[in-house]
Design a protein around this nucleic acid. Structure first.
Ligand SMILES: [Zn+2]
Ligand SMILES: [Zn+2]
Ligand SMILES: [Zn+2]
Ligand SMILES: [Zn+2]
Lengths: 172, 172
DNA sequence: GACTAATTGCGACTTTGTCGCACTTCCGGC
DNA sequence: GCCGGAAGTGCGACAAAGTCGCAATTAGTC
């Protein structure tokens, strides 16, 4: 993997710039994150670490993730609308918003320059200095609408390739 | 209070339409919600109920709130970007989005027809049938930017009038 | 290599949310 | 108004998610 090195580099320079230490725990946290799917929670990172045989304590992961966000290695999103905090990898990825399908559970990543522009206008109008934003639209995706596939009519949304790939299906 | 009756009415017709029962617990849940601030979590509703001396069990509140959402009495939002589910009252309120100030913690409610239009376009483009959406922009509000007020430079954001009024300050 | 403050591991703890089940209440029919 | 049965509630035990203080360890500096 190539992106791995990138994240590590980013972590290091971030920590340095903040006078924090580059430690084993933090490095392992990054490694664990690599093994996570498209969208995941902190517990998933912890689980991934354990699955990979990395010995890091839960608390360490919980302490590291916010740093990874600050470093830009992770991004906090709420793609699935669950009540839990969710993250996605942030390196080498443009900002995007999410269309969440209520039927199949997949989340489609989209972006629109016009939209971003409109948001900027809105902020300006209110004298608000934007730092970042999140847009999530819930509804039904093209596939599910056309009924082209046996949709998950009952039970939790089926974790198909695109949306929630690797990780365990979101619990609760 | 006048809105109170409205919510009760809404609750009743919703339950009827779904073949569910209009029960004490559900009525009390609505009553408790009335006592909540602009944005709140289920636990806040529970707390409000207790504070009001309404005897309802936690579990009942947890079971009722999702119904209130379906009934349109509540709306699920994530205004403050916390990891917890948040709600706001939904009756007689237009859809709006949130500008969340990272400094003072207030959340400013805004809406923009242009934005909504743009979102519709985006969805159409992807063959996506939108049901609802949520936009939250984080940044710094006009007041805090002008430094006109002693901003909460340390500690949790000060719960000032607009944003998180009545309820307890968000814990954690 | 020694020093010192930052970080980790750990486990106990809190908070948030869920569940099964016995008891109660609602509601439609009489 | 009263009955019967299903829906809903209270309850407490439980599970999951996240936090905290502290002693032991370790990264960075000299
Ligand atoms: Zn995404
Ligand atoms: Zn779909
Ligand atoms: Zn909107
Ligand atoms: Zn502000």
């Amino acid at each position: 993997m190539k992106g791995s090195g990138e994240a590590a580099k980013r972590l290091e320079s971030f920590l340095r710039s903040r006078g924090l230490r580059l430690t084993r725990g933090r490095r392992l946290a990054v490694e664990a994150v690599e093994a996570c799917g498209a969208h995941f929670g902190i517990e998933d990172v912890d689980a991934a670490a354990r699955a990979k045989g990395l010995r890091v304590h839960r608390a360490t992961i919980y302490r590291a993730v916010p740093l990874l966000v600050e470093a830009g290695i992770l991004r906090k999103v709420s793609a699935s609308g669950g009540d839990r905090g969710e993250y996605e990898k942030g390196l080498g990825r443009e900002h995007h918003d999410h269309l969440l399908c209520l039927d199949c559970g997949r989340s489609i990543e989209v972006s629109s320059a016009a939209m971003e522009r409109e948001q900027a206008r809105l902020c300006a109008q209110h004298g608000f200095l934007a730092v970042d934003h999140q847009l999530r639209i819930r509804g039904y995706c093209a596939v599910c609408r056309s009924g082209g596939r046996p949709r998950a009519t009952s039970g939790p949304p089926a974790p198909i390739a695109t949306g929630a790939p690797a990780g365990r299906p979101r619990r609760r």
